[in-house]
């Protein structure tokens, strides 16, 4: 890579809570290093100063929920050489994809004083349903270490280390005792994508599936395991229907347990 010109980094926001892009600011110790390695060209959360595109690396947060955003994402794609979606909203539609299982008009009529002003799509969808995406980084929120890993891999022209295997492997690497086997705690770890470092099981809780489905999730078998531990159909619907509700394997599993 030519060292005289730093690659331009842009951060874009769609329907989201901002938590994922905040993990870039949360890098603290490494933030100066990031600023040294890239030109932060568009990052409204950090600075109002905007450098014109095109951009070498775009980080896209949030899901597509409005007709306007469905247009805007195409402009961003055109202005970006390498586009990475970050977080459960951008990769799976996010918690707001719960609308996909219902009628969004029912919500707008309750929440807003003048629902007629609200122009929204019937579904919240991941970025990859609208444009080609070069890389997806999972998590609700993403792990800042993994974000740095992706940026570092991009800058150094290598593959990022973000394994798609289960959270169970992360538990075992840490020496954790399996909460499901040793305590009967229902856990989504066996069907969930690694990346959090097995945060919840480390604190004796079952995995909530924040990183979405792992590479080959057998959700049906895990649901049967949960049932043996006493989980009811409604528990299974709620377990699979959270931050990654609209990710295909989780969506199908929650629908299978809905009356």
């Amino acid at each position: 890579m030519a060292q005289n010109k730093k690659p331009k980094l842009a951060v874009w926001k769609f329907a989201s809570c901002d938590g994922c892009q905040l993990s870039l600011l949360d890098c603290e110790d490494e933030l100066l290093e990031v600023a040294g390695a890239v030109e932060i060209a568009n990052f409204m959360e950090a600075s109002g100063a905007v450098v014109k595109g095109p951009y070498d690396l775009s980080l896209v947060e949030g899901s597509i929920t409005t007709p306007h955003d469905a247009e805007r994402i195409h402009q961003i794609r055109r202005a970006s050489r390498f586009l990475v979606t970050i977080g459960a909203c951008a990769t799976a539609g996010g918690i707001q994809a719960l609308r996909n299982f219902s009628d969004v008009k029912k919500f707008t009529s309750i929440v807003y004083a003048t629902p007629a002003y609200i122009e929204t799509l019937s579904k919240s969808t991941p970025i990859s349903e609208h444009i080609p995406v070069d890389f997806e980084l999972r998590g609700c929120p993403i792990s800042k270490q993994q974000l740095l890993e992706v940026v570092s891999a991009f800058l150094n022209h290598r593959k990022p280390n973000t394994p798609a295997h289960s959270v169970c492997i992360e538990c075992k690497l840490r020496g954790n005792v399996c909460v499901m086997v040793a305590n009967g705690t229902p856990c989504l770890g066996p069907v969930t994508h690694a990346g959090c470092g097995a945060l919840c099981p480390t604190y004796d809780r079952g995995c909530y599936g924040c990183f979405g489905p792992m590479e080959s999730p057998n959700t049906k078998s895990l649901s049967e395991g949960w049932s043996r531990l006493g989980a009811k159909e409604g528990d299974l619907v709620r377990a699979f229907r959270s931050f990654n509700a609209y990710a295909d394997p989780f969506r199908k599993e929650s629908e299978a347990h809905e009356k």
Partner: peptide, 30 residues
């Protein structure tokens, strides 16, 4: 296969399973 989660727990707890991978990492400056 209809029951197996492919979660890898069996291989992680197995005292003889020895498979490993290598991961290369770089800092941002390279």
């Amino acid at each position: 296969a209809s029951r197996c989660l492919a979660c890898a727990n069996c291989t992680m707890v197995c005292p003889t399973c020895f498979c490993s991978t290598v991961e290369d990492t770089t800092n941002l400056k390279g």
